[in-house]
Design a protein around this nucleic acid. Structure first.
Ligand SMILES: [Mn+2]
Ligand SMILES: [Mn+2]
Ligand SMILES: [Zn+2]
Ligand SMILES: [Zn+2]
Lengths: 149, 149
DNA sequence: CTGATAATGAAAATCATTTTCATTAAAAAT
DNA sequence: ATTTTTAATGAAAATGATTTTCATTATCAG
């Protein structure tokens, strides 16, 4: 019986029961800056919550994504990765090392980027009648360490 | 015994033999503007080349990607999609409809985008010692048709 | 034309993710 | 506090994309 957590209210309308796996997964994601995969989350929780199932991790991640509390990414790796989303965390994008898989957050040029994105969205709406709801910018390359090899 | 195709020379160093599957797959991709999946390519070729294997399609796509003759994309769908790459085809990005999966090429704002990307790459190289080699911009949303539903 | 072997294709294996279904536990009702 | 309802869970099986294995085939150098 998990405590009345501050996150609980954000689930109203999406879900009826507040459970330990949901709390544990959200807590873990909120406390790391990493971009974790479902299996990594599962492994990390096994210590504090033996008996948790990988299936539940996947289901919970889907749920959290739908409520907008986490973001899901498909970098060019096999598995999806997830990160906690919060209002005070700035809009950002990623550098992905194609050699070791390292992921770096960056939010430099957010203003200029947003300007270009907005302009593009408006233009694309007119030209293609396409309603832009989300965008994604990624840089692929080599991290400092991997450039040495 | 496939003819001495104009593409053949581009494989020097990567591959020793020029085969029918390689020619057929490259030809198909060069003639469509669509972003095809491995299975779609396999299905399309079955007519003109019965007996072709899906395995070979995958292997050939990997090869073509390594030689830079095609590009591979992982939109948020289950399967990877591929498009022909050529010098005269302009650098472009994609609008992806999250409802029906439709993919639209666009190259508007290429100049401004490139300017921002270059500036970012330079900055990121300094700040994070990250060597940018490639970038990816995608817009997700609803196509004209799907906005009506 | 012939031999060496790169490339192929069928089948099996892998890997991430989803589905199924019997069991458990959150929380509403008593 | 206890019972009841049923949403949520977790083990196991299923799925779907992609990769690996390996015996066979076909390219192409000699
Ligand atoms: Mn991030
Ligand atoms: Mn394209
Ligand atoms: Zn690296
Ligand atoms: Zn659509």
């Amino acid at each position: 019986m998990p405590g009345q957590h501050r996150w609980r209210k954000r689930f109203a309308g999406h879900v009826c029961r507040w459970t330990m796996p949901r709390e544990a997964i959200l807590k873990l994601l909120s406390q790391t800056t990493k971009h974790l995969s479902a299996k990594e989350i599962y492994s990390a929780l096994l210590r504090s919550y033996p008996g948790i199932g990988l299936t539940t991790v996947y289901r919970t991640l889907d749920l959290l994504e739908k409520t907008g509390m986490i973001k899901k990414f498909n970098f060019r790796q096999g598995e999806s990765r997830y990160e906690f989303a919060s209002e005070n965390k700035p809009h950002h994008h990623h550098l992905i090392c194609t050699s070791c898989g390292k992921i770096i957050d960056y939010s430099d040029f957010a203003d200029e980027e947003l300007e270009l994105v907005d302009k593009s969205a408006k233009h694309l709406a007119e030209k293609y009648k396409f309603l832009v709801q989300d965008h994604n910018i990624e840089f692929y390359g080599l991290c400092q360490q991997c450039q040495k090899d």
